[in-house]
Design a protein around this nucleic acid. Sequence first.
DNA 1: CACCTCCTAGAAAGCGGTTACTTGGGCCAC
DNA 2: GTGGCCCAAGTAACCGCTTTCTAGGAGGTG
Lengths: 349, 349
Amino acid sequence: MSGPARRVTIRDVAKHAGVSVATVSRTLAGDYPVQPATRHKVLRAVRELDYVRNAQARALSVASPGAVAIVIDNVSSAYYAYIAQGVEEQAAAEGRLSLICTTGGDAERELTIVQMMREQRAEAVILVGSVVQDEDYRERMTRYAHWLAASGSRLVLAGRPPLGEGVPALTVGFDNTGGAHAVTSHLLSAGHRRILYLGLRPGHSTSDSRVAGYRAALADYRVGHDPALEVRCRFDRADGYAAMKQRLTDGPRDFTAVFAATDVVAAGAVQAIHDHGLRVPDDISIVGYDDTPPAEDIRLTTVHLPVAELGRTAVRLALSGKNPLTEPPLMLGTHIVVRNSVKRLENPR
Amino acid sequence: MSGPARRVTIRDVAKHAGVSVATVSRTLAGDYPVQPATRHKVLRAVRELDYVRNAQARALSVASPGAVAIVIDNVSSAYYAYIAQGVEEQAAAEGRLSLICTTGGDAERELTIVQMMREQRAEAVILVGSVVQDEDYRERMTRYAHWLAASGSRLVLAGRPPLGEGVPALTVGFDNTGGAHAVTSHLLSAGHRRILYLGLRPGHSTSDSRVAGYRAALADYRVGHDPALEVRCRFDRADGYAAMKQRLTDGPRDFTAVFAATDVVAAGAVQAIHDHGLRVPDDISIVGYDDTPPAEDIRLTTVHLPVAELGRTAVRLALSGKNPLTEPPLMLGTHIVVRNSVKRLENPR
DNA sequence: CACCTCCTAGAAAGCGGTTACTTGGGCCAC
DNA sequence: GTGGCCCAAGTAACCGCTTTCTAGGAGGTG
């Protein structure tokens, strides 16, 4: 660490090699004829000075591919991590750098980040997962969407609801209603009629569409919908545990099965069931959603989501050149994974 | 989508507002006196044209903070994801953007990425986790380390061994030997004497230091070290399952406890044990390492690693201005988490 | 009223590259 | 021997923004 590390520029290389900057630039680009002797002089100077081009400066004059920005709640939950992984993979495959930003679920921060990405001239901004969307948020994000479009960037909403008609944003997501319908039907066909839904608070778009599938399946089987069977908790394992525990302790035990809105919530619920001295699936059946890692460990029947594929698709969509105003939302299919958490009832009540 | 989206520049704003580009720049910077009337004219033009500064161009003239690059095997394994999360958090807190790149464990790709990060003028490059390090790799990475240092960037090795003396790279990691010693001692003090080590292939630095702790603890208890009790498999759950299954089927069942090098391997092993009709901890005790999510679900006694803290520390270290040549490696402490996977033996053999 | 000072805004020179245009030398044909 | 052509290398403008330096007008003072 001796002295101020002045970065070596193309001009230094030119001087060192005794040629003009143009020659250095051309040698490095390789798309213009340069005499072997000169090219060697240049390359030697480059080596001796440890010169590397400045990508930022380069981007000024040459139309280089911009970065892909992933804006995500956090990267430590498996669901988001897999999406991020998919985004990064595809971005790298298409020769783009990935910028990653976490919001911690804060809508305000998300808006700030989108602005930052405009300054960075990101080629694509991929908004992942849900965020509480009030009217103010929607209005501002819509404005940003127009700005991004005007400057040639793409906005992709991955796994979240569209912003509305006429907003230049691409959308890709899972068929949550269909998946919830399938997994609820699985319980119903096993003879369960009283199914507790353990989900996130209303207004949370992902949970809402899962509730919709749950209700639709009940309707298909002509089972009355009982609001008292819809319990709401927050996202994580501890919340699932607490909610289940409370229900087992205080509430009526008038259900034979549980549909947890996410596997993590299901994992918490399973632990509460065990702590209560009951067994899965013998005493209570349970299904989850997402097919994230805990599902396999607790032998949970759940709905598999192609999460990494969501990330990859988001990038492909962003770089595809499709018109964001006319391109319809893309829906990725889901499928149910049967493990060992549902018991078939012989005599359905 | 009408016409070629020409980006609006500071000159456009200047013309639109009827002032000079300098005035626009100064108004936006806010650090130079500008008449209220003029400033309003400028701001109106900015609003009307949806102008945002080009951060890349800006970086050319003003010494702006560079990005922090995270170079990581993948982001979908919980261990890495938490590190990445820590890095991103701290980078954001220090006003830096995070670039994320995955290598898929490919050393060659890692080297390429480091070069790319030099072009990007990243302020810090954080190499996370292990990669197979042959002589060629070490030599080239050492060269890159010097280059990065010469251009004022910081290289941080997070959770991997130092490159060697005189290499300008900062190092931060976990005390794996200590952790392995602690958890092995836990088994020994519970009366276990024949402990199977289920680890990664030799040469893998993380596994090697865990083996060292395992052997040291055995020595402390004056228990002979039996090479036949060290089984090697690969990283993931399926490999842990296969290795354990094979040992239970073919190998001698001459052990009462298992020390799995990672929780994920432990999770696979537990499943194999169950599939073999045995129970944990009644028939076989098992401990893991990392304290990643599966550990809680399978009630695994394991070693907790402050992974997010590793990420944060890496960033702090990189931006601290410490001399990478003289700064000693930083070791983050670990602690054992006792759950329910170890049985106390009454009559130790 | 002349002069000086202060304040604001403009002109222009970078930052580190790329590239259109220009130049000069070697080679060939007449 | 001279004109024409081609090729390699140099000159300089430009990418979008910041900032130093300079200019000019307002306002205060003798």
